[in-house]
Design a protein around this nucleic acid. Structure first.
Length: 217
DNA sequence: AATATCTGCAACCGCGTCATC
DNA sequence: GGATGACGCGGTTGCAGATAT
């Protein structure tokens, strides 16, 4: 499955494409013993035929402990929307305020759920807040659907700037400290509820080290 | 049931920034 | 101060699964 890129001088091919479970185990095991960083060297030392960038990305976006999996919650959705209006496409900055989420995840979420369907999202939320507006939302979303995929880069921005749909959250726009925004939505770790990712529990149970190792990471 | 289209996400690529020499 | 390499970020692509026809 993974593509192989052969070096001109005959050095071992560099694997590309999806990571295998074996590669994941090697990477996680190596980082648990030596820590992260020096990714090119890490890739070589761990015996992975991957480049450092690939290892870093895999670790940060998928293997790193503490990552949340599953759907973006409504609270996270609001944070993403608001921080995007304030920060723009600073995905890593936005992700910093969403514990357990990665910049890649936030970016994908924005592109596929918000940016691509700005009007539907807006109207769905309005419908949640004002159930009596259902019929309006339905008719508007129908007309909005014609302008979805691959819209220009400004469409979503214009929408967000023009009509942030949470009247009770207008205080957010006045916050100079974006940290206050997330504190409001995520006042405690309990807020994560059942969204904590369970998908790979079995995978983690197989790892050859104890959780305290990750506590320090 | 078969095929086409859409959607979501993992991963790659290119570029900018920073640290080191 | 310039060259080089490592790292991080944002944009984009490719593919598998889901859904529609």
């Amino acid at each position: 499955m993974a593509r192989m890129i052969c070096g001109r001088t005959g050095e071992p091919a560099v694997r590309k494409g999806p990571w295998t479970l074996e590669e994941d185990l090697i990477l996680v095991g190596y980082i648990s013993q030596h820590g992260e960083g020096s990714w090119d060297n890490l890739a070589r030392s761990a015996g992975l035929n991957r480049n450092g960038k690939s290892c870093r990305l895999r670790w940060l976006n998928y293997l790193r402990p503490g990552l949340r999996r599953g759907s973006i919650s409504p609270e996270e959705d609001m944070v993403i929307r608001e921080l995007h209006t304030r920060l723009g496409n600073k995905w890593s900055e936005i992700a910093k305020h969403l514990p357990g989420r990665t910049d890649n995840e936030v970016k994908n979420y924005w592109r596929t759920r918000i940016h691509k369907k700005p009007h539907q999202s807006k109207l769905q939320l309005q419908a949640q807040q004002h159930p009596g507006l259902d019929s309006v939302a339905t008719s508007e979303s129908a007309s909005a659907s014609a302008s979805t995929s691959q819209a220009s880069s400004t469409v979503g921005d214009e929408y967000m700037q023009a009509s942030f749909p949470y009247p009770e959250l207008t205080w957010v726009a006045d916050q100079s400290d974006v940290g206050a925004i997330t504190t409001r939505f995520f006042s405690s770790s309990d807020d994560f509820g059942d969204n904590v990712w369970n998908v790979e529990d079995r995978f983690w149970e197989t790892l050859p080290f104890a959780d305290p190792v990750y506590e320090a990471l």
